[in-house]
Amino acid sequence: MGPGRVFADLLAARVCPQVASRQPDPGPLGELVSGIGIGELNQVEAPGKEVVIVPVRDAGEAVHRAVQLVVDSVPRAIGVPAEQTQVITPGHGGAVGTRALNAALKERLNPGPGRFGGFDPGDRVVYSPVPGRALPGRVVKADAQGLHLSCEGEDVVVPKERVEQSVRHGWALTAHQAVGSRWPAVVVVLPGDAAQALSRPWVYTAFGRADRHLSVVHGVEQALPRAVAEVSAKPRTTRLPVLLAPQISS
């Protein structure tokens, strides 16, 4: 699900100006993410704790450390509050998926009975008005109309019958849900069972969501550098370059 490979197809069709630049973005985070983009996972100097690696041994420890980082370590050491810190993990299911992480984070950050489809006022959520689109937001209230959200400054009312399919808790997201957004601090969780899900584009996307600080809860050992170096995006074939070709010759 998603837009395909429009940008890559435009480049391949050569119907627009192209400028190649290898100048990395500024700072340790920019250096790290730029290296990942060309298949290199570099150890960067981070005197201001811009990048922190947190080794873990199992799923339980990964969840514990992720919650600890969001609730305590990042606010205290970096000065970024929990509401501006985003957790990113490879999938929804499993012991360290978004469901497990969101349950643990809700318990610490906004405990409640979840009387409206599992949600309470103040819950951080992600709303999908259509498949493939994800809007971060917060629960304002719930009434007979449905679940009232504030999404990027706009008021949204989700009817009760659509809540289950279109609203999820949003303290933890997948990289796919996080595309297009950036946060002051990001905690990327890589449990041992995530090794098969990792690829260079996934790591580039997840690590690139951080603006000031990146913590990596690291339980995949050598699978991470191997994914960055060897596992590129899966090839996809579309008709867009062919459709654009007549415009080049005309």
Rank of each mutant, 00 (worst) to 15 (best):
V80G: 05
T85E: 03
V63S: 04
G37L: 09
A95I: 06
G91L: 04
A100V: 01
V44Y: 03
E40F: 03
V96T: 10
V44G: 14
A66I: 01
S21G: 03
N42V: 14
V74Y: 10
A77W: 09
V80M: 07
I78N: 03
H92V: 15
A59R: 03
G79I: 08
E45H: 10
P26Q: 12
E40H: 07
Q18K: 11
G39R: 10
V56C: 11
I88N: 00
A62S: 11
V63H: 06
A95W: 00
T89N: 12
I38Y: 09
R22G: 04
P28I: 02
V80Y: 07
I36D: 02
A82H: 13
T85P: 09
G97F: 00
R65S: 05
P81L: 01
T85W: 04
Q84D: 14
P17Y: 02
E40T: 14
V71F: 12
G94V: 01
V96M: 02
A100N: 02
P17E: 00
G48M: 15
V51D: 02
A95Q: 05
Q43M: 12
T89L: 03
E61D: 10
D25H: 08
Q84V: 10
Q68M: 10
R99P: 03
I78F: 12
I38V: 15
Q86F: 04
V71A: 06
R65W: 06
V52N: 02
V33M: 09
G97C: 10
S21P: 03
P55Y: 13
P17I: 01
I38S: 15
R65V: 04
D72W: 12
G27Q: 07
P47F: 14
Q23W: 14
A66D: 03
V74S: 08
E31V: 12
G79E: 03
V87C: 08
V87F: 08
V80D: 01
G35L: 03
V33H: 11
E40A: 09
P28N: 11
H64Y: 08
V56W: 05
G93Q: 08
S73Y: 14
H92M: 11
G97H: 01
E83N: 10
G97Q: 01
V52M: 15
V63W: 04
V67K: 00
A66T: 06
P24T: 01
A100C: 12
A62M: 06
V33Q: 11
G97Y: 00
A82V: 07
S34F: 08
G30A: 10
L32V: 06
E61P: 13
I88G: 03
A100G: 05
